[in-house]
Amino acid sequence: MERKDWPLWEVFVRSKAGLSHKHSGSLHAPDAEMAISNARDVYTRRNEGVSIWVVESKHIHSTLETDSESMFDPNEDKIYRHPTFYDIPDEVGHM
């Protein structure tokens, strides 16, 4: 590996115990260990996190913008998936 081939890593930070890791940004580093240590310096300088994940960007697969209609639109007419679809009289109380 040459310097110019340092891979790009995506950085995910868990902001506190009990919460999910969330994407923070990206950086270049020669390996995972250095990616994590750089991520600590760049993305958690003010207690922003208690845990860091790094993933090489090339390993992330995603939906395509051009697919988004066929991927997500079928949900739109399935309103029975939401609690407000069901009529429960007020007298029953909170449900």
Binding site: M1, E2, R3, W6, A29, P30, D31, E33, M34
Partner: peptide, 12 residues
């Protein structure tokens, strides 16, 4: 940068 690259290569 060279040292970091060499270190990563060696570990790999």
């Amino acid at each position: 940068r060279e040292a970091a690259t060499a270190y990563a290569n060696k570990r790999a």
